[in-house]
Computed example of a mutant assay.
Amino acid sequence: MSEKQVTLIGVYKANGGVVGELSYFFGHLVGVRSCSLCDVTHSPVMKKAKFKDLEKRLKAELGITFKLVHMNERNAEELKASSGREPCVLLRYDDGGISMLLDYVELKAIDGSVESFEKLLRSRLDFYL
Rank of each mutant, 00 (worst) to 15 (best):
K56A: 15
G96H: 08
L37A: 13
L68G: 11
A60Y: 04
S34P: 05
E61W: 09
K50Q: 15
N75A: 09
F26D: 06
G84H: 06
L68N: 12
R33K: 14
G84V: 08
H28C: 09
N72Y: 02
F51K: 01
D53M: 14
R85F: 09
E55H: 10
K56I: 05
R57Q: 06
I64T: 12
H70Q: 09
V45H: 06
Y93M: 14
S34E: 11
N72E: 08
L29G: 03
C38E: 06
C88I: 03
G97C: 14
L62H: 12
S43Q: 05
M46Q: 14
E55C: 15
N72H: 00
S34Q: 14
E77Q: 12
H70L: 03
G63I: 00
D94I: 15
E73M: 10
S82G: 02
L54Y: 00
E86Q: 13
R85V: 15
E78G: 06
Y24L: 03
F51G: 03
S23K: 02
A76M: 10
E73Q: 12
L90K: 03
K80V: 11
R74V: 14
G20D: 02
V30R: 03
Y24W: 09
R57M: 03
K47E: 08
T65R: 07
C35F: 01
S34M: 10
C38Q: 08
E21R: 13
G27R: 04
K47S: 04
V89Q: 01
N75Q: 13
L91F: 02
G97M: 04
K47F: 05
I64H: 05
V40A: 08
D94W: 03
C35V: 01
V30P: 05
E78N: 07
I64R: 01
G96W: 01
D94N: 09
L62F: 09
V89R: 00
K67V: 15
L62D: 07
C35P: 01
L68V: 15
D95L: 13
V30K: 06
F25R: 12
H70W: 02
V30W: 01
I64K: 03
C35Q: 00
M46S: 15
K50M: 13
H42P: 00
R33S: 06
V45M: 12
A49I: 08
E61G: 15
V69S: 13
A81K: 06
K47H: 05
V69G: 10
R33F: 02
C35L: 01
D53S: 13
G84L: 11
S23E: 07
L91N: 03
K48V: 10
Y93V: 11
F66M: 07
D94K: 06
A76H: 12
K50D: 14
G96F: 13
E55N: 12
V40Q: 02
